[in-house]
Nucleic acid binder design. Structure first.
Length: 656
RNA sequence: GUCCCCAUCGUCCAGAGGCCUAGGAUUCAGCCCUUUCAAGGCUGAGACACGGGUUCGAAUCCCGUUGGGGACGCCA
């Protein structure tokens, strides 16, 4: 093929690409050219021949069958479907509400015009005048889970990017526990991370209450409207009867579909069942025909057959409402425009769409994020297996590192929250919240093939749902540590000192109100330690600089190896003599002293350096020895060497 | 079992038909530097699940297979 042909082909394709539906960020001027469905009805037919149409059907028949299904299930969208032949987006019509989320036919990542930077002029709020509103709905479990934070972060970023509002709603319909107590650590976690919420607990808002348990009246009202509209019915089946039907379906290897034998649609029917002593729950009367198709903001068009859906219970006999009803109603009441949540909710979406539409609400746009997987596996992270994950080598590393800091602090955090899968862990040990956020951002999202560090402002400016990945991502503890290191290294000196001081106080190395000279020493130690302090809590490795010369502990093993060696004590004593007169007492000079000493003694430097290090710091490892000696000062160094010599003498005496 | 979703180095991502001899990060290994431990520098190992199709050309589009995951509750 000639170059000319290649060029022509390329141009041809580019021309065609221009007619693709516009990406989200160009909303507002995307009505040029017809949308080209990439995964439209044709493909659905091909992909799902057995379910969407009977096997052996001709293409044309399949198409009309689908079209009729659409009619049954989908009312007013049908004409468009029949005409355009592609699955329309149920989430939001073009131009309505935020004007976001118009069906783009395809939601793969879109090439960004002119480089990687998005500008803010594409913000959704700009086009429709309606504020983007997202929510995160934690249940009060007592701790903030890493997977939940990722979901919350994406919601938060999306709202912030579009100048919208981020709402916290508490899903506490399961009220067995003390909600207040179980909620506090979650709110604390959000605050620590800097994920602020515009409406929700503690801050209130125009749609209060933000606790689901306080919204029962609204839910009740919705149930009544569902009933009145014929979208739900009272059902008098017992749990056992339903179970029997379910098992029968299982035996037939079919999906369970309720027979509606105990359905009561009229007062007379209800009375008849009640006379048998039965009590009613309220079930959705789900369509038994048609397709529920919607356009997921990260996964593209998705379709479910209504007939395969259950008549889900929305209200128990005692009047309490179930999650999906409550959620759909609350999302509407809170004017949520974008429901961004984990994929496990994808297959729950049809019933929520059903409830939403039956109630006459506009459906929000949906975006289903891939879940965060277990370390080294594709399985979803499970809160119940937190302890099991500690067996994973990378996790164990992180956990042990944290545990060592805790033990140096003399603290024993509760094991259920002292886990690298719980945000609290990172806070206790002294990670930077920005590092955690940055790591989590990249778990399922990326800007390009190299940008990795994002300030919060940059995240907000760059975040788009179309660059969210669709496959599960497993949590990599070591990579998170690597991010933490980078953030710590880039922290300005004062900030690093400030991060470290509380840890010194927690272990008693520093008084509650440290003096300027205390802080000066901290800052010198922090500077000398450099990259060795990866996590603020790592400062516990240098507490010897803050302890009295006679109190800091010696590492037994190092003491034995470096100071009990033949001739070590005598050498140390001679080196000590040299220290008495050095002037000035700084690292550079000390280095010179050491080298002259080594030369005079005709020994390799290793024979003396380690002995001095152990004598002066008690440890076998640490940062530059001479920097350390300078920080301690002459008097302390001499005192420490004297103490080491005394201990040597004493132990020698004991051995004799 | 039924439905839905997913599939690029061990892990996280890039890739939107030719810029791919597949790029970055992390991890791992080796070397250099060095008073220890780190850091740093350099080098290296390491992936398009498989099979068909479309095309001059496929990691990329289509179909199938396989594999993985999720949902099928009077849980949230």
């Amino acid at each position: 093929m000639t170059l000319q042909q290649v060029v022509e082909e390329k141009q041809h394709r580019l021309l065609r690409r221009r007619h693709r539906p516009a990406p989200v960020r160009r909303v507002g001027r995307h009505d040029d050219g017809p949308p080209v469905p990439q995964r439209g009805l044709d493909n659905l037919l091909e992909e799902r021949p057995a379910t969407a149409a009977a096997p052996g059907m001709e293409r044309q028949d399949q198409r009309s069958r689908i079209a009729s299904l659409q009619v049954a299930g989908d009312g007013d969208r049908v004409e468009h479907l029949a005409v355009s032949g592609h699955v329309d987006c149920l989430c939001r019509d073009a131009g309505s509400r935020a004007g976001l989320g118009k069906c783009r036919g395809r939601h793969r990542k879109q090439r960004q015009d002119g480089g990687k930077l998005h500008s803010r002029d594409d913000s959704a709020s700009g086009s429709g005048g309606v504020t983007v509103r997202t929510r995160f709905a934690p249940s009060p479990t007592g701790y903030l889970h890493i997977g939940g934070v990722r979901t919350a972060l994406f919601n938060w970023l999306f709202a912030r990017r579009h100048g919208g509002r981020f709402i916290l709603r508490i899903d506490d319909t399961d009220q067995r526990r003390n909600v207040r107590e179980a909620l506090q650590p979650i709110l604390d976690g959000f605050r620590w991370l800097g994920l602020d919420w515009d409406e929700g607990p503690e801050v209130g808002g125009p749609h209060a209450p933000y606790f689901q348990s306080g919204r029962q009246a609204r839910h009740q009202e919705a149930v009544e409207r569902l009933l009145a509209g014929g979208h739900a019915y009272r059902d008098y089946a017992t749990a056992d009867e339903i179970q029997a039907e379910r098992e029968a379906a299982q035996r037939r290897k079919q999906r369970f579909i309720y027979s509606r034998r105990w359905m009561a649609e009229t007062p007379a029917e209800a009375a008849a069942f009640e006379s048998q002593g039965r009590r009613a729950v309220v079930r959705l009367k789900m369509p038994r025909e048609g397709v529920c198709a919607f356009d997921d903001q990260v996964r593209g068009p998705v379709a479910f057959e209504w007939a395969l859906e259950q008549d889900h219970v929305v209200q128990r006999a005692d009047g309490s409402c179930l999650y999906h009803l409550a959620s759909a109603v609350d999302d509407h009441d809170f004017e949520i425009t974008h429901v961004i949540r984990a994929v496990e909710h994808l297959s729950n979406t049809p019933r929520q769409i059903f409830i939403t539409r039956a109630l006459g609400y506009d459906a929000p746009a949906y975006a289903h994020l891939p879940y965060v997987a277990e370390p080294g596996s594709a399985e979803k992270l499970s809160k119940r297996k937190l302890n099991a994950y500690l067996q994973h080598p990378d996790f164990r590393k992180l956990h042990e590192h944290g545990a060592a800091i805790m033990s140096a602090l003399g603290e024993s955090p509760p094991p259920q929250s002292f886990n690298p899968l719980v945000v609290e862990f990172y806070r206790t040990v002294g990670y930077r919240p920005e590092a955690l956020l940055n790591y989590l951002l990249l778990l399922g999202w990326s800007l390009d093939d190299r940008t990795e560090m994002f300030t919060t402002a940059e995240m907000i400016a760059q975040f788009t749902l179309d660059r969210v990945n669709r496959s599960a991502a497993s949590f990599d503890a070591l990579k998170l540590l690597a991010f933490e290191e980078r953030y710590m290294q880039r922290l300005p000196a004062e900030a690093r000192v400030a991060a470290v001081v509380p840890f010194l106080q927690r272990c008693g190395a520093l008084p509650p109100s440290p003096t300027a000279s205390d802080l000066g020493r901290v800052s010198r130690v922090v500077a000398a330690a450099g990259e060795r302090i990866r996590v603020a809590g790592d400062i516990v490795n240098y507490t010897d600089f803050f302890q009295s010369d006679r109190a800091f502990p010696y590492d037994e093993k190092a003491f034995r190896k470096r100071l009990r060696a033949d001739g070590a004590a005598a050498r140390l004593e001679r080196f000590r003599a040299a220290l008495e007169t050095v002037e000035p007492y700084d690292a550079e000079t000390l280095n010179g002293v050491m080298h002259r000493f080594v030369e005079a003694e005709a020994i390799p430097i290793g024979r003396i350096v380690h002995a001095v290090r152990v004598a002066v710091t008690g440890k076998a490892v640490g940062f530059g020895l001479f920097e350390g000696m300078e920080i301690l000062g002459r008097a302390a160094c001499l005192a420490r060497i004297d103490r080491a010599l005394e201990e040597l003498e004493r132990s020698a005496a004991e051995r004799v």
